[in-house]
Design a protein around this nucleic acid. Structure first.
Lengths: 132, 132
DNA sequence: GATATATACGACATTTTTAATCGTATATAT
DNA sequence: ATATATACGATTAAAAATGTCGTATATATC
C-alpha cells in the first residue's frame, strides 16, 4: 500500500534524464526506454500524457522526441501526481461520497486529517527537487 | 495510487469503535462487522493480526471478543501500518535491492528522499490521534 | 458433557487494479 | 517514397487486493 505507480516512476525517470541534458535537446521514447529498461510503448504513452499536460513538449517525425517545457520548480509533486493519476487520496471516500457505509463510518474525519497531511507534504515538494 | 488497504481501514474502524466504549469491554468481530457493514471473516483476521501484534487482546469462547491492550498514543501510524502491511515504501526498490535496473536507475536517491518524508510524517502521528 | 458461540488460521477463489501489448493513424526529416 | 517518430484507443496479461471456505480450538451456559 501507499505505492506510486510505474507510470509515475517512468515519468520521473524520463524527466530526470531530460533534465540532465541540454534543455533544448530532443529525446525519443525509444532512447529512454532502452537506456533504463522500460517498456517503450508504455513510456511513450506516459510521455504523451505529460505533453498533453504541458509538462513536456513533443516533436513528431524522425529526429523528433520530447523536451521539457514547464518550469519544474513551479510544479508541486501533488499537482504532478494528480495530473498523471487523478485526485490524490488514501481512501476513495475522500472524493467519492458514494460509500456504502456513509453515515456509519466512524473514521472519515480522522482519515481526512491524515490525507490532508499527505497532500500538504506533496504540495510542498517540487518536481525540480526530484529530477535535478 | 498511494492508497491504504481495506485491512488498515477496517483495523482503524475497529479500534475507533473499541475506543468509544469502556476500555475493558469485549467487542466481537461480528458486532463490529454488522455495525459497519464489513465482511466479518476479513475483519476477524485483521483483529487476530492486531492481537498477535499486541495492539489488542483476544478472549475466546462465547461472550469473548477483543479489547484494546496497547497505549495507542505510543504507537505511531508508521509502526501501525508496518505491523499490518509490512515495510512502508512508495517504491519496492526502497527495500528490495533486486531491481533489474540496479545501476541504471536515476531516481533512486530522490525517491528515497520523498519516501523518508512520508515515513517521517506517519512517524509523527499516533494511532490515538486517528481513533480518539 | 452436549451445545452454542467465539477466536484462530491456512487455503482457495474472486475481483479489481496495474502493467504491458497490439493495431492503426499521423507527422516529417531524408 | 521511405523510415522513423509521436498519438492513442482497444485489448490482453499480470499482479495485488479483497473476500470466502473449511476446519480447529477455546469456553460459557444449560
Amino acid at each position: 500500500m501507499l505505492k506510486i505507480t510505474r507510470k509515475v516512476e517512468y515519468a520521473l525517470i524520463a524527466l530526470r534524464h531530460m533534465q540532465s541534458n541540454p534543455l533544448d535537446k530532443l529525446t525519443s521514447a525509444k532512447e529512454i526506454a532502452t537506456l533504463y529498461g522500460i517498456p517503450q510503448q508504455l513510456l511513450a504513452k506516459t510521455l504523451q500524457q505529460m505533453a498533453r499536460d504541458g509538462i513536456i513538449e513533443a516533436v513528431q517525425g524522425p529526429a523528433g522526441g520530447y523536451r521539457i517545457l514547464a518550469k519544474l520548480d513551479r510544479i508541486s509533486l501533488k499537482d504532478f501526481f494528480e495530473k498523471l493519476e487523478g485526485p490524490l487520496g488514501m481512501m476513495d471516500c475522500y472524493f467519492d461520497s458514494d460509500c456504502i457505509q456513509i453515515g456509519a463510518c466512524n473514521i472519515r474525519i480522522p482519515i481526512q486529517r491524515i490525507n490532508d497531511n499527505m497532500r500538504n507534504m506533496f504540495a510542498q515538494m517540487t518536481l525540480q527537487e526530484v529530477t535535478q
